[in-house]
Design a protein around this nucleic acid. Structure first.
Lengths: 198, 198
DNA sequence: CCTACCGATCGGTAGG
DNA sequence: CCTACCGATCGGTAGG
């Protein structure tokens, strides 16, 4: 991994944890062990670094898309497998979830375009699979396919992003990990039950 | 509304839209038409202003709590009424949702304490109502009550917060308002179907 | 002695 | 990739 990659990785972490404005170029450079000026050699502006970070997250997402779509051919466990792939993608690096959520809040206009390009085609495709499930009778007839798929994505994204906080809200004697595991189990149950006829 | 209240209101808007670090005291003061020094007279530091903003949101939430809990005595439409109260609370001022989501990302440790105090007792109470519904047979036996209630809150919060982006993701010819209405209708269907036996 | 401010400026740091 | 800087703006405080 060269310096440009290391800088992007450090920026991803810092943007995710303290936000774009909260992360100074100096702080990002220090994490990598280079000067701020070296950073600005690789990325000519802070905004260029932002775009590089975001592009990299979506590049990873597109890489996993075929695997995700393989999971959703037909039947009950197939849709759950898709949700699991989604959870796996964000839990593999929770900074992805926090970063995307921050971008959604910070740059709604930009993100509308980015998501229209990167997420919309995929949502429409999965929604078509949902419609096939309705036709074959295994899925509730009153589901709104596109809205449902978006809800699943939002729910996974938000739950992974706010995971550090969840524990204090519903836990009793359980550990933070157990609480999160419980939360994700209910996420699978909830999204499955809301979709399929029994 | 005196200057202190106006400053808090302006800070709420700016913190919600550009984040805590992105909102300068100068910009907040300018919105109200006072100097930055006047702001610092009312709130001795930026962090004090942050706490005042957050406290005010939770004060509003606690105000509406009795009404919310009235809604959840028993039966199908009662739980939906509770979700509608929650949606109403955040849609009445979407800045509340954006602000809370930002705080969850910016200050997870602080928010864990804040939510343990302000949200946890209420979640546990509603979860007890869910358990009663399980006993009486109207609610699915495999629901995780606390996790379910938290998912509903997270789903409402996230959907209101990212509303400006939703339209570009699933819409075709519909207006942004119609798309959001569709999204919220599916939210009600999803949370209802995941809870109740048919 | 208190309240609600003002114009000016402090030491540091931002992105570039 | 580094040294040496810039215009501007940051959160916070001075006396009156």
């Amino acid at each position: 991994m060269d310096n440009a990659d290391q800088i992007r990785a450090a920026a991803t972490q810092l943007f995710a944890s303290v936000g774009y404005d909260g992360a100074s170029l100096q702080a990002i450079a220090e994490r990598v062990g280079v000067t701020k000026q070296t950073l600005l050699y690789h990325y000519p502006s802070k905004d260029a670094l932002r775009r590089a970070v975001l592009d990299h997250v979506f590049a990873h997402f597109r890489e996993r898309l075929p695997k995700m779509l393989d999971a959703v051919t037909s039947g009950h466990d197939r849709f759950e497998a898709l949700t699991r792939e989604l959870v796996h993608f964000f839990e593999a690096d929770p900074d992805r979830a926090r970063l995307l959520l921050r971008e959604l809040l910070d740059k709604p206009d930009d993100m509308r375009r980015v998501l229209a390009e990167n997420l919309r085609p995929w949502i429409l495709l999965v929604a078509q699979y949902v419609r096939q499930g309705v036709t074959s009778g295994i899925i509730h007839a009153d589901v709104d396919p596109e809205a449902y798929v978006l809800h699943v994505i939002v729910l996974v994204l938000a739950n992974v992003a706010v995971r550090p906080v969840t524990h204090g809200v519903i836990s009793a004697e359980a550990t933070p990990d157990e609480t999160h595991e419980r939360q994700m189990q209910e996420l699978f149950r909830l999204t499955r039950t809301a979709l399929f006829n029994r």
